[in-house]
Design a protein around this nucleic acid. Structure first.
Lengths: 161, 161
DNA sequence: TATTGTTATACTCTATAACTATA
DNA sequence: TATAGTTATAGAGTATAACAATA
């Protein structure tokens, strides 16, 4: 994806009638749309995360799945899907992929024979440990990009959401 | 998507000792990841936007394209793509779609024969007017969901980003 | 009847590469 | 050589519907 230069506050042109506060391209109502800026941030976050975890080839969705399985060993696919707002059907393929890589397992659930009890393999736990370290680097980069204060305020606001 | 109540640092509840404040499923490190919550919010925003603009069948990306073309008549596809962080290749298909619906036009650019000068048709302007009204409803819904104060703080923080 | 996991389909989006016509 | 627009392709992600096994 293309680099996103906001131009909005970029001091690129030397002489611009109304100073360089005027954007090169007018965003019009988008300038007052929270949804627009949330998407821009989300795109940045996603790309930085993917780049940093590329050595172990773990996507944001895969990371969240590994984290939640590890913290809730034996939970079902339906519970996992609901928790992470992933479609049940999509989760099936995601788990197939992780299982093929030898990171997760579907064990028979005691009691309800419809369910699978999910858990990580040893390899899965090892990958998760590396993933968590890299994800912390990513989070640190995000904190630096936003400034520590803004990061903190944002995190607290969004946690309540 | 599932409703997400975070409960973690909310000063909203008066007394919440150790009751059902504990989530059914443990999110582990995800609880401290800004990126995770940004995605949750982004998903909510996207779905609400799509639902509200479904009567005129305009997606968030299409909306942003119409807005920026209208506010910058004659700009090129490359400029538009860079501004909105859309891939050049993706923008081609997006504009093909809007053009087939009779909402946008690619006119010859004076001077550089490689470029197209983009502009809205009359129908495009009419649709954009309706889209802006519906998008304002969406924004109002978002403001209510977050509370007016949180909405304002978030908007100001993210605008600087 | 409802739920769990699964398969299938269609559509959108992202990420690339390569091509053409201009500059 | 570089840029603007285009085509093509592969892989994710989203949204549905339907099915078998089980509750």
């Amino acid at each position: 994806m293309a680099e996103q230069k906001r131009a909005r506050t970029l001091p690129l042109r030397k002489t611009q009638p109304r100073q360089r506060s005027r954007p090169v391209v007018d965003l019009n109502v988008l300038n007052d749309r929270l949804g627009y800026f949330v998407r821009r941030l989300q795109v940045w976050v996603f790309q930085d995360f993917v780049r940093r975890l590329s050595p172990i080839d773990i996507s944001p969705a895969q990371f969240s799945v590994l984290v939640v399985i590890d913290a809730n060993r034996g939970l079902s696919q339906a519970e996992l899907a609901t928790t992470l707002a992933i479609e049940r059907a999509r989760l099936v393929r995601l788990l197939n992929h992780l299982e093929r890589r030898g990171l997760t397992q579907r064990l028979p659930s005691s009691g309800d024979r419809r369910r699978h009890a999910l858990q990580l393999t040893r390899d899965g736990q090892a990958i998760l440990a590396r993933a968590k370290a890299l994800a912390e680097d990513h989070e640190a980069a995000l904190r630096q990009k936003l400034s520590a204060e803004r990061y903190q305020v944002l995190l607290e606001l969004l946690q309540e959401f």
